[in-house]
Design a protein around this nucleic acid. Sequence first.
DNA 1: TATGATTATGGGAGCGCTCTCAAAAGACAA
DNA 2: TTGTCTTTTGAGAGCGCTCCCATAATCATA
Lengths: 337, 337
Amino acid sequence: MPLTLEDIARLSGVSRSTVSRVINADVNVSDETRRKVLEVINYYNFQPNLAARGLATGRTNVIGVVIPAGVSVIFTDPYFPQLLQGISSVCNTRNYSVMLWLAEPEYERRMITRILHNGLVDGVVVAKILINDPIIQSLIDSKMPFILIGRHPTVDVNYLDVDNFQAGRKATMHLVRLGYRRIATITGSQDQVVGYDRYQGYLKALQDTGHPIKPELVVEGDFTEEGGYTAMQRLLKYKPDAVFVASDMMAYGAMRALREARLRIPEDVAVMGFDDIPASAKTDPPLTTVRQPVYQMGSKAVDVLIDIIEAGPAAIRKVLMDTELVVRASCGASKME
Amino acid sequence: MPLTLEDIARLSGVSRSTVSRVINADVNVSDETRRKVLEVINYYNFQPNLAARGLATGRTNVIGVVIPAGVSVIFTDPYFPQLLQGISSVCNTRNYSVMLWLAEPEYERRMITRILHNGLVDGVVVAKILINDPIIQSLIDSKMPFILIGRHPTVDVNYLDVDNFQAGRKATMHLVRLGYRRIATITGSQDQVVGYDRYQGYLKALQDTGHPIKPELVVEGDFTEEGGYTAMQRLLKYKPDAVFVASDMMAYGAMRALREARLRIPEDVAVMGFDDIPASAKTDPPLTTVRQPVYQMGSKAVDVLIDIIEAGPAAIRKVLMDTELVVRASCGASKME
DNA sequence: TATGATTATGGGAGCGCTCTCAAAAGACAA
DNA sequence: TTGTCTTTTGAGAGCGCTCCCATAATCATA
């Protein structure tokens, strides 16, 4: 049977209250008493019961992490392990624990109420929510602090995301600087925020550098390899010399289409991807792409969430994070030199 | 403020005890009363506070999952996401929650005591523990129910693992049946249980089928690509016609060595891997290998653990799971036909 | 030395639940 | 009607902690 506060109190000849003060680093304890109590605590390796503390304080120092299962089956990408590492790391340093919920559809509704109302967690991180997921409204109604990973277009909630606009701009700028003149794009689905934002970044880069925007050089994809392939086929007749593809998966498809058309990468057409999934380092040629700071997104999200939990409700926090251009061979070297 | 049992009791005109009985499906409640109370509970979407319940019962219905960080940085493999899915799935159906700990080395000791003694979890699943990790002794001392994923050679604890011996045997048998005569093996480190077991399976298959065991056809590797490469180089002069490599990673190295030696796979040398990491479907040629039922390992481990938690201490449970041969092109078709 | 301010400690209530035990309410037979 | 047995309900204590308040001890100052 584990020891209790009362046991420690008895063993060190003080009251339960004093032991509690020592554990919670209250200043109103004499050095002598503190020393005595700590000795006993360390000797017995005492750990206060967190369920009891949770009951007394109304706070558990546990955060929930919700990952929709529909998303978490995507195993080709180290996204979730990295995200969890980031989350876990901050939780460790800030003395929180992580409750993980992989939300299977059939349990989803039951589960949500269980999470929200059972007093088990102080706040929730929701990863990669599907647009218009009912969970968001439940969360808002519950008054539980929460943060989304992936920005939400319509509802005013705390979120953290990659700055897809700047990233799209940065990627396109890279192509511009290398001297490409007919820069096409295969966008993501325009009804998804990420697809839209990356496309807007592409447009901005061209505008800023005085490049004309040619509608025929813009094709909408759907984030799949197949979609990238057909999109590239359609682009071919307009003879682009470079293409910014809004996801690595689509970029693979685009590269396949180029190979079939006997075009060399990057000599005939340069290819820029987005995501930097691991396989992109090993394509032929290795893919230049944009990397998201996944680990940092996890840690930052939790940091913000814990701030909200501990400081109480404040202004909505919207955090955008920078991406990193990963230059490999698929865009070639400068055409200027 | 969330409602309490007392609130529900008042609202439905019964006592706190009766509401508790209804929630816990106690039989000693009249149908009429039960109906009345359930109505109120559903109307207000009441959820009992789990911290309070935990305090009262000494059970939390939470299991801890510990993944050493040294291992979880391995991102090339969907191992952990799949394992977590399996774990999570059973937890959902059996009404448990998952507390996730990615053990960073610097926090490890602190964390372990926190997990074990703070009354937050009823049991622990420890994934891919390093051999002789001190965590095992701590777990044993703590009397907390726990199960290892990955069998432990020396200490007598609950574990669940893949049957590496049978798997090694099965893989080798496949090569035998295809008619290969000089079947070599690149083993894993022999000081790791998995490496040893797979090698023993190889030996058994050869014995059972009356093949002589040629020591020159056995080279010890270290589970790295580089190790597989050098091991294969050493094997070449003994002219094997097939090689069972104890991990896919090493198999990639072995294939590289074969390509450099201008040997065709599988015409000159067949290659059998182990693990079925995703990239193995896309090597040239695609790698025949052994797949571990990772998802099932997660779910089975939790199933066993919860049984132990709910039934109380019993005999040590040691579970071995079957593997699946994934036949692709790297071992060719039968030489007999 | 008495007084008040300050610091250190202990006692009690209460967080929301479960669980035991006793009492109340019915059911039934004599 | 009374008594016995069974079913249903309620009251109370307690899980291990925090937090408030009262009291005791210490110290500075008049």
